[in-house]
Every structure is written in C-alpha cells, then in structure tokens.
Amino acid sequence: MKAVFAAEPNAEDPLSGLRFGERPDPEPGPGEVRVAVRAASLNMHDVFTLRGVGLRPERFPMILGCDGAGVLEDGTEVVVHGVVATPGWRGDETLDPRRTLLSELWQGTMAEYVVLPEYNVVPKPPELSFADAACLGTAWLTAYRMLFVKSGLRPGQTALVQGASGGVSTALVALGAAAGIRMFATARTEEKQAVAKSLGAERTFESGARLPERVDVVFDSVGRATWSHSMRSLRPGGAVVTCGATTGDPTAAEIQRLFFTQLRVIGSTMGTRDELEHLIAFLVASGVRPTVGASLPLADAATGFAAMVAGETAGKTVLTTN
C-alpha cells in the first residue's frame, strides 16, 4: 500500500526523513479492525516523530498520522480515535501511564489502510465529510477537552486563545464561540487574526498586546513565547489551560502572580473516546466544522509538512488517499 512515513529520525532536519512510498499491507489481529483510510490530517506530533522524539531507532520506519477517517471492511464509515490504551485499562485512557498514540507503537493513518483496536473507531455521521472527520482526533479533541472538560468556562465568560492559527487554536475559537463564550485571540499577522475573526473571535490582537480587559481563562499551547502574557491577561482567580509548549518551557513560572492572584494552571492532553463522540455530536448539532487550510493527496505530503513547519498554515492540512 502507499503511505507517508518517517524512514529514520533526524532531530536537526526532520523533513529529511519524510518519505512517500510502499509499505506492507496491514492485517488485523483479534480485537482489531482494518480501516480503508479516506483522509488523514497533519499534526505537530508527526514532526516530533520525524525528529525521533519518543521513538527508539528500531521503531523506524514508522507510518505517520494520529488522525483519520475511513471505511471498515463492512462499509461502516468511521472516525479514528488515536489514543491507544494498554489492554485491560479502564477509565480515562489519557491517564493511562502506558498509553500511546497512533504512529508510536501502532503504525499511523497516513496510508491507504490502518489497523487498530476495535475500540479506537467511532461511527462517522453522514453530516461530516471525511476531510472534516480526519481533523478531529487530535487537534479538535484536544480543544474540546480543554474547553468543555478542563476550563470550567460558562457561556458569557471570556477566554483568550494564544497563537490562534494552528489546529488546536482555531478549534478552540470555533467551539468556544459556538458555545456562547466570548473568545479573544492573538496572532502574529493580520491575515491570521482575520482567520480567528471568521471563526467567531470577538476581538483579535497582536501577540503580546495588552488586552482591554482581563479574561477568565487563557488557552496556551505556545509556552515560553506567550506564558508571561498569558499570566498577565488573567483576572484574579482565573486559569491557564495548557496542552503544549511549542516554543519551549517558560523561563519563569510567574509564581508570585500565581499565588497572589490565586490563579490556576491546568494541564490537558488529548481526549477520550467518549469525548470524541461528544465532540462529533456537538459539531452535528451546531453546524461548526473544522477549517481545512489545505487538502493534498498523500503523494504531496511533503508540501503540507513544509508549510506546517514554517508556520504558514491556517487551520488543518488534510491528506487524501483518492
């Protein structure tokens, strides 16, 4: 089968290990299903894989992709849930200390076929296209958990999304606005600010700009470059919900501000299968859909990866198999 894969890790030049070519057809074992992939989407996790983060050298070559949507052998259309718990785990799979994501122990979704545990597929409703559904498992599920499970926000309250042009950030703006939350957003360029406004952001600002009012919650996946601004932007008693640090760990924890204004720092990672089902139901009911910035065939994956690494994306990049 055709697939997009990491041939070998390269921490300094991750795209040098990116390949498109033939890989063995996967065969499902007991309790597993094979999905004929129709669409998969890119995430920064794929770049980390290309860098060799979290994978031993003997795990290569590794097919990339945590997200996808496709068709089971019986014709059922499904969305892939990329968090794979260890056998016998019960409860929130994101809390399983031995959990993995697709493209870590299991081969990923950027291929004509993917095999995974039966638990890790969710029915795709006809209202969602395969491209829409392929965006949900990582970025949109992460945003859903941050917003509706972790933040404690209620309709009418105010939130700030830092760096609102990537997959998680655009999902946060769209979901929050649809839920009646006042969404502020920062972005480096006017074009990216315009994207956030089109998704429902009430106000947009340059990165680091002083806000006209402090907010109840800040969503921060940037880390070092935005952390101090995030802490300064909160009302007393507010919270930062973080799911990553793409620019590295903050140089200062802002501990004085943290205790003096009684702020909260909340970590969030991915989401559960149940939350993915709830996210899908919310999209069907609300009419909200992912922003697909680019749709490319598998063979052109390198173009999409180069744009993502350069920070030139607005929304999700989707790869299609036909």
Rank of each mutant, 00 (worst) to 15 (best):
residue 189 T to E: 10
residue 262 Q to K: 14
residue 60 F to K: 05
residue 222 V to D: 07
residue 181 I to W: 00
residue 62 M to Y: 04
residue 44 M to A: 10
residue 23 R to Q: 12
residue 260 F to P: 00
residue 138 T to S: 14
residue 34 R to V: 14
residue 70 G to D: 06
residue 309 V to H: 13
residue 104 E to P: 02
residue 191 E to A: 14
residue 294 A to T: 11
residue 291 T to K: 15
residue 28 P to I: 03
residue 280 I to S: 08
residue 282 F to C: 02
residue 89 W to M: 05
residue 130 F to N: 02
residue 230 S to Q: 05
residue 13 D to Q: 14
residue 19 R to Y: 07
residue 181 I to D: 05
residue 257 R to E: 15
residue 16 S to I: 08
residue 245 A to W: 02
residue 166 G to S: 11
residue 208 G to V: 09
residue 146 M to E: 15
residue 179 A to N: 06
residue 138 T to P: 00
residue 54 G to S: 14
residue 314 A to P: 04
residue 54 G to I: 07
residue 124 K to P: 07
residue 309 V to T: 14
residue 5 F to K: 03
residue 46 D to S: 10
residue 214 R to Y: 02
residue 289 R to K: 15
residue 88 G to Q: 04
residue 121 V to K: 13
residue 220 D to R: 11
residue 213 E to L: 12
residue 96 D to V: 07
residue 186 T to D: 11
residue 90 R to M: 10
residue 142 T to A: 10
residue 49 T to A: 11
residue 165 S to T: 08
residue 222 V to E: 07
residue 300 D to T: 01
residue 287 G to E: 01
residue 1 M to N: 04
residue 73 E to N: 02
residue 92 D to K: 10
residue 259 F to I: 13
residue 109 T to R: 01
residue 317 T to D: 02
residue 204 T to V: 15
residue 216 D to K: 06
residue 153 L to D: 03
residue 203 R to E: 15
residue 202 E to V: 14
residue 218 V to K: 12
residue 186 T to V: 07
residue 166 G to D: 11
residue 92 D to Q: 08
residue 300 D to L: 10
residue 130 F to M: 03
residue 235 R to L: 12
residue 283 L to Q: 14
residue 51 R to F: 05
residue 261 T to E: 13
residue 274 D to A: 15
residue 58 E to Y: 06
residue 271 G to I: 01
residue 39 A to I: 11
residue 113 Y to T: 02
residue 114 V to K: 04
residue 134 A to T: 13
residue 170 T to K: 03
residue 70 G to T: 05
residue 8 E to P: 00
residue 29 G to C: 06
residue 13 D to P: 01
residue 152 G to L: 01
residue 263 L to N: 11
residue 311 G to R: 09
residue 8 E to V: 06
residue 312 E to I: 00
residue 98 R to V: 01
residue 91 G to P: 07
residue 235 R to C: 09
residue 40 A to W: 02
residue 103 S to K: 00
residue 287 G to C: 02
residue 225 A to G: 03
residue 262 Q to T: 13
residue 138 T to H: 03
residue 16 S to Y: 09
residue 216 D to Y: 03
residue 37 V to I: 15
residue 53 V to D: 10
residue 77 E to A: 14
residue 195 V to F: 12
residue 128 L to F: 11
